[in-house]
Write a protein that binds this DNA or RNA. Structure first.
Length: 485
RNA sequence: GCGAGAAUAGUGUAGUGGUUAUCACAGGGGCUUCCCAAGCCCUUAACCCGGGUUCGAAUCCCGGUUCUCGCACCA
């Protein structure tokens, strides 16, 4: 069974995520987060916000429903709607633009009629079977919405909500650059063939950061980490070196860009993604998005292939320049100068997958423990009576109620045998189980059992567990969170 | 989207025209000499959807949906 399959099976069974609308047959590319996945996803967002807040970032929240004018300016309307045509014989579909370019005609037809006319003039045939092609039609990579005759789209990225607010945000920031703005939210892409669970979806969670820099100041942000990283440059050369060194050797072209690679790596590690499965890969010139001058992706290795989880793009002045031109508003930060933008954009759902895959461990006896970091586990602690009899159940509930006051996500379970309950918590990544036994009845002490080592710490006065935000930072409790980075 | 295969309890599966639809695990309840999914008893729970063929369909046919693998797509 592949890594992805293991996670999908566990996720569906234990409530991390599953396909949406399944009682109606399901829809490809849409997934629900279950009770555990919702908490995990929120914790990922939480760590992400903490990281960017800690370096001075500010948050914004803008709509998904976006007027066409905005996406016209950003280039998405032209780049995200293709004219397509289908072969009448073999049913394959093709982009009209690429068919014309095969004929040596480099132009984008202005509409369906224009395209149809040109296709007839050049007598374009199906490149697969030579068959006759049908009338072209619009193929939307964005989801269009019509409201009283006005056209909107669901946003393909959250970024535009930040760019269009640049003036208001800069005013909030009291005119100062650099300015770091971040937004969490859903993005939408009409994927032709969504696959692989949370990896390619039609609707997905994004965390996007737009860093606005004064282009006259280079190296406002500098990477510091000495840690060696795996870098793959646009010419396919592998490098194993620290980020400052990569800047010195001109592999990464700007210190500011490298700094946000550093922050991205820091974030991935902080949420428990295995650093041995991570690399940065620079986009080739021909794969850069229309708005991007340079881009490094953080990629995660799963089932033998690398999947993008964050793209750190240098968008230059593309977006502000276009919005200035299309809206007529002055978006310069001083005089004529436009801010330059670095954008670390993370796929939150992919990060959740990466966490689950990094944490998944099968023991020799065949049972699974999820080695989630303590700060990520949906249930930080479970309270388990050794058995139900002899007042253990009552005592356990009493202690559980106390613990609930400081840790609302504590979990209680008294069904079946104790071993089964430990196993159940291991599988969903709960780092600690507090066991209430006969000693507790006599001396108010409990046993704490650690998930990965299965070791027990005996004779802990349970009152001591109530004095800290206990199950994430209590010094009494060691171990756990054992994804090595 | 194309081509090929697949879809049966929560999960994994058996079942080639007539079965009370198999088994395991998981879930719930109980017993138990009770600290790692032990054992025993009881129990919940499924043929993807819609048409068709047939006396009779989980099983055969058609369409849809979803999944897997290849191709294409991934701004």
């Amino acid at each position: 069974m592949g890594e992805l399959e293991n996670i999908m099976e566990l996720s569906k069974r234990r409530g991390f995520f599953w396909p949406s609308f399944s009682i109606y047959g399901g829809v490809a590319g849409l997934n629900d987060y279950g009770p555990l996945g919702s908490v995990l996803k929120d914790k990922v967002y939480g760590e992400w916000k903490n990281l960017y807040a800690s370096i001075g970032g500010i948050e914004i929240d803008t709509p998904s429903v976006t007027p066409e004018s905005v996406l016209k300016a950003s280039g998405h309307v032209d780049r995200f709607i293709d004219l397509a045509t289908a072969c009448k014989a073999c049913k394959n579909k093709f982009k009209v633009e690429s068919l014309l370019s095969d004929k040596g005609v480099d132009m984008v037809p202005s509409g369906v009629e224009d395209a149809w006319k040109i296709m007839k003039e050049l007598s374009v045939k199906c490149p697969r079977c030579g068959g006759e092609l049908g009338e072209p039609f619009e193929f939307h990579l964005m989801f269009p919405i019509d409201s009283n005759g006005e056209r909107f789209y669901l946003r393909p990225e959250t970024a535009q909500g930040i760019f269009v607010n640049f003036k208001l945000l800069l005013n909030f920031n009291r005119g100062k650059l650099p300015m770091i703005v971040y937004q969490q939210g859903k993005g939408y892409r009409n994927e032709i063939s969504p696959r692989q669970g949370l990896i390619r979806q039609k609707e997905f969670n994004m965390g996007e950061v737009e860093v606005f820099l004064d282009p006259a100041v280079n190296g406002y942000f500098k990477p510091e980490t000495k840690e060696e990283m795996y870098l793959l440059d646009r010419d396919g050369r592998e490098h194993h070196m620290s980020l400052p060194e990569a800047v010195n050797k001109n592999i990464i072209l700007s210190e500011d860009h490298a700094y946000f690679l550093e922050k991205t790596m820091e974030f991935a590690i902080r949420i428990g993604i295995d650093s041995k499965r991570l690399r940065f890969r620079q986009h080739r010139k021909d794969e850069l998005a229309h708005y991007s001058r340079d881009c490094w992706d953080l990629e995660f290795l799963m089932d033998g292939s690398w999947v993008e989880i964050t793209g750190i793009s240098d968008r230059g002045t593309f977006d502000l320049g276009n919005h200035q031109k299309f809206s007529g508003e002055n978006l310069a930060f001083e005089g004529e100068n436009l801010a330059r933008v670095i954008e670390p954009a993370s796929g939150i759902d992919r990060m959740v997958m990466a966490i689950l895959i990094s944490s998944y461990n099968k023991r020799e006896n065949g049972y699974v423990n999820l080695k989630l970091l303590k700060n990520m586990a949906p249930y930080p602690v479970a309270v388990l009576p050794l058995q139900k009899k002899d007042g253990l159940s009552e005592k356990a509930r009493e202690i559980f109620n106390e613990i609930k006051k400081i840790e609302p996500m504590a979990y209680y379970d008294e069904s079946g045998t104790i071993g089964r309950r430990y196993a159940r918590q291991d599988e969903i990544g709960t780092p600690y189980c507090i066991t209430i036994d006969y000693e507790t009845l006599e001396r108010e002490v409990v046993t704490v059992r650690e998930r990965d080592s299965m070791e027990q710490i005996k004779d802990i006065p349970y009152r001591d567990l109530l004095t800290h935000r206990p199950f994430i930072s209590n010094p009494i409790l060691k171990g756990s969170g054992s994804v090595k980075n």
